[in-house]
Design a protein around this nucleic acid. Structure first.
Lengths: 349, 349
DNA sequence: GTGAAAGCGCTAACAC
DNA sequence: GTGTTAGCGCTTTCAC
């Protein structure tokens, strides 16, 4: 209980009968120190439980061994895995990780970046929230703090970025549906708030255009990215006269909602409607049939982002790189030809 | 790009033609400062983009506004939610959160605590990994660093703790199975590595004892907490001669594994076997039928832990509190009487 | 090889 | 009211 006074360099210097300078040299193993002295100092330090004071070190020389990470939401498995990977990678370079979710709010993101700046972090990884301008990120760059964007690119921000090919993935997903014979492919999207949603929607439109299918506004539903809203949107979509025969959902929460909505409607997948979702998720392989999805290379994002960040922290001044990782269509059992045709185990999809 | 020299208190003092002390007083709003001076200083500071240097402040006075959190695994939704809640709560007291998973390894936990100590964090929240001794946590306490344990209590460690009633929850779960008429209730558990698993297993044994049912070693399977291992364990359990009629799983990963194993065996829930899992999870309401589970009050853990921590950080010296939150049995559709009896929509469970 | 001394940026007595 | 001064714990020239 007694908040024992922390042992400082001065203490161990005194105990070893050397100057603080000599002690520091011994402990950090630089400069000239007599082998005997060094050994003695090190032993005494160990004995007294000396542990150095990063704060003082940071004040003197550089910065604290701190890196900040701002995901949209740490509860999202996508970000949770990335956080885990960043954590694991960063630990090897003995950096500690500050994590704080922006909850997709720019204001919150700004505050977080602000506090990171005050702490003088060595670098920051952020999944930027949607916003027309981003002065806080620019300020970071301006101060020379290494910054890596993940998941969402930001135009005009000269920094490294790791994202996935959202448009391409969506195009492939919808293409697969079209290849199976669908013409009336619905989509649920998320009000365009986030860049990724916009790109995925663009991919949807692109796939339709590729095959000369006109966009039909009645097949495009808007919902916030929650299970409940997606469920409702699905129900609206399929209660229309002349309903769609297939559905493409822009993220895994929406895919879950779609599943629930379809179930509520008594519609069976893939017999009554075919379904493809963006983003793989654990539930996708538990359903019967399993759900066909566009999988993102989540496991690559964190490690790559860290590698880029460390390079910058080491002083690299290469021009910013924007890596766009490819997605992968995982064909499972949720796609079949329209009109309750044959089960499509081995269809084009 | 140009790492513009950070503006320091000295700079703004010079620009305002006052001493550093006066400037500091104006900026931090303490002590006597002339209103005019204060205003001028503040304006100049804003103009120059002064932002103070927490590191220097910390060196001088107290500590950095840092709190550490060591979950077992940030990817586990249980910990992800807690992390989210801690983050949200802590933000209000303007603390930044360091998060690093122990991966259930004491060695890693020790290293993390070590680095937190070096950073002089204000407090630590940890889900302690299984270990006979915990010198690093004791050291923390000894230094007077506030520490709150979550999810797992540690005997003999005089600090606050928030856990759930694992034994009681398990007892209720198994009791429910027994009430439905089951006598041969199997359990899959996790090698006793973690305290929670041990308590849940004790609850299982307790429920059996309550009803005069003898423990049967052949009904107790060991598996690590992974879907794959639990799947195998389930298959082993139900391939025996005289197989169980009900199954209790100790966490959600295992429940998923059990579902898969049962499906592989062609066994239907709850007709052929009844199932109750510890820990609620999203999939539990997607399956047909939905799975009966023992739900933990996850949403309470983080906020409560933070409240306790903040109190300690404010200097409270109350005796340590150990709060054990109650669990709740959520009766869904995975329990029925044994022997393919009637569907148990409204059975005792 | 080792010690003395000068700060890093900030705060808080204490003097004026 | 405001300035002077003395450090917080550490690193790092620069003498010796």
């Amino acid at each position: 209980m007694a908040p024992r006074k922390t042992v400082t360099l001065k203490d161990i210097a005194a105990a070893a009968n050397v100057s603080r300078a000599a002690a520091a040299r011994a402990l950090n193993g630089y400069g000239y120190v007599g082998a005997a002295t060094a050994e003695r100092v090190i032993e005494i330090a160990a004995q007294l439980g000396y542990r150095g004071n990063r704060v003082a070190q940071a004040l003197r020389g550089g910065q604290l061994p701190l890196v900040g990470f701002v995901p949209g939401d740490i509860q999202n498995p996508f970000f949770a895995q990335i956080a885990h990977d960043i954590d694991a990678q960063l630990r090897q370079s003995r950096q500690s990780l500050l994590i704080a979710s922006s909850a997709e709010s720019v204001a919150q993101e700004r505050d977080l970046i602000e506090s990171f700046r005050a702490l003088n972090v060595r670098g920051v990884i952020v999944a930027p929230a949607a916003s027309p301008t981003r002065p806080h990120l620019e300020a970071l760059l301006h101060e020379g703090v290494p910054l890596v964007l993940i998941d969402r690119a930001v135009e005009g921000l000269p920094c490294d970025c790791v994202s996935v090919d959202n448009a391409g993935g969506a195009r492939a997903a919808v293409g697969c549906l079209i290849a199976a014979g669908h013409r009336r492919v619905a989509v649920i999207h998320d009000d365009q708030r986030i860049v990724t949603a916009r790109d995925r929607l663009a991919g949807y439109a692109g796939a339709l255009a590729d095959h000369g299918i006109a966009l039909d506004a009645r097949l495009i539903a808007v919902a916030q990215s929650t299970v409940a809203q997606a469920t409702e949107a699905t129900i609206r979509l399929f209660r229309q006269p002349d309903p769609p025969t297939a559905l493409f959902t822009l993220d895994s929460l929406m895919t879950k909602g779609a599943l629930l909505g379809l179930r509520a409607l008594g519609l069976s997948v893939p017999r009554d409607v075919s379904l493809v979702g963006f983003d793989d998720f654990d539930l996708a392989t538990f359903t019967e049939p399993q759900i066909t999805v566009v999988a993102q290379p989540v496991a690559q994002i964190g490690p790559l982002a860290v590698r880029m960040l460390l390079e910058r922290m080491r002083g690299s001044t290469e021009p910013p790189r924007h890596v766009q990782l490819p997605t992968r269509l995982i064909r499972r059992g949720s796609v079949a030809p329209p009109g309750g045709g044959a089960a499509a185990t081995d269809s084009a999809c």
